[in-house]
């Protein structure tokens, strides 16, 4: 437990001093702020564009547009930023050999994985929550209201997907060696899930739906029930990834 606390503190120190936390918070905050703004500005932007002979009619932007924009940004760019910020967290230490000394001091290997996962999920949660609150605020400011159907469930889904992704990063870091192996493997896992998403039968269980069906939820095209299977699979897969990382890391050569 001592080791876990000490190492978690070190993780936070690393995130702060290597500007990882700052990058993540700043980028997600920007998305949270820009999404409602962009939705509001869209008609203005289009009207400024020189289009000859074509008349484009754009419906008046709504709260839904603001949130659709938010989820689009978060599930694509946001997830990529999370991937880039955290993908090297374990593999870099293994490659550089910085874990040798703490482990030679009696730090348990489980504590390494758990500290890293805990610290990264706290950062993800904090920056995502900040982005969410900012988006709420701006939407309220620009549209007078901010609530949309299934908004909080939809936000939760994307958060859970992020948590799942962080677990995949941990597992990838224990399986593959090298600085970019972990990033590559995580990207492959994402690509496979996206590819599999075209099969409607598996679709229901696919974690990727948590990051792709947010708009459908907002538009009432899908219900909480439709996504509950995916929520449970994602949760189970997250736990499974972590357990596997713990087991595999125990046998990792350092």
């Amino acid at each position: 437990m001592n080791g876990w606390i000490a190492f978690t503190k070190k993780e936070f120190m690393e995130q702060l001093r290597s500007y990882k936390a700052l990058t993540l918070i700043a980028v997600l905050f920007l998305f949270g702020m820009a999404s409602p703004l962009l939705a509001k500005m869209m008609p203005v932007i289009f009207s400024q564009m020189p289009v000859q002979g074509i008349s484009i009619t754009i419906p008046k932007p709504t709260i839904l547009d603001a949130w659709v924009q938010f989820f689009k940004n978060m599930s694509q760019m946001g997830i990529i930023v999370v991937l880039l910020v955290f993908s090297g967290t374990l593999s870099r230490e293994v490659t550089k050999g910085t874990l040798v000394l703490p482990i030679s001091k009696g730090l348990s290997r489980n504590a390494v994985i758990l500290s890293k996962y805990f610290a990264s999920i706290i950062s993800w949660t904090f920056s995502y929550a900040l982005a969410g609150v900012t988006a709420c605020g701006y939407t309220f400011y620009l549209f007078g209201r901010f609530s949309a159907p299934h908004l909080f469930f939809s936000l939760f889904c994307l958060w859970l997907f992020g948590a799942f992704l962080l677990a995949v990063i941990m597992l990838a870091g224990t399986v593959v060696s090298g600085n970019y192996g972990g990033l590559l493997l995580t990207a492959v896992v994402l690509a496979v899930m996206l590819a599999v998403n075209v099969f409607p039968r598996i679709n229901k269980w696919n974690p990727v739906t948590l990051a792709s069906d947010n708009s459908s939820l907002l538009l009432n095209a899908k219900t909480v029930g439709d996504l509950s299977a995916a929520v449970w699979t994602t949760f189970s897969l997250t736990v499974l990834c972590l357990i596997l990382s713990l087991i595999l890391f125990r046998k990792k050569k350092l």
């Binding site: 001592n2 190492f7 703490p102 009696g106």
Partner: peptide, 8 residues
């Protein structure tokens, strides 16, 4: 300090 905390 980190090392000491790890070693308990």
């Amino acid at each position: 300090k980190l090392c000491g905390r790890i070693a308990g």
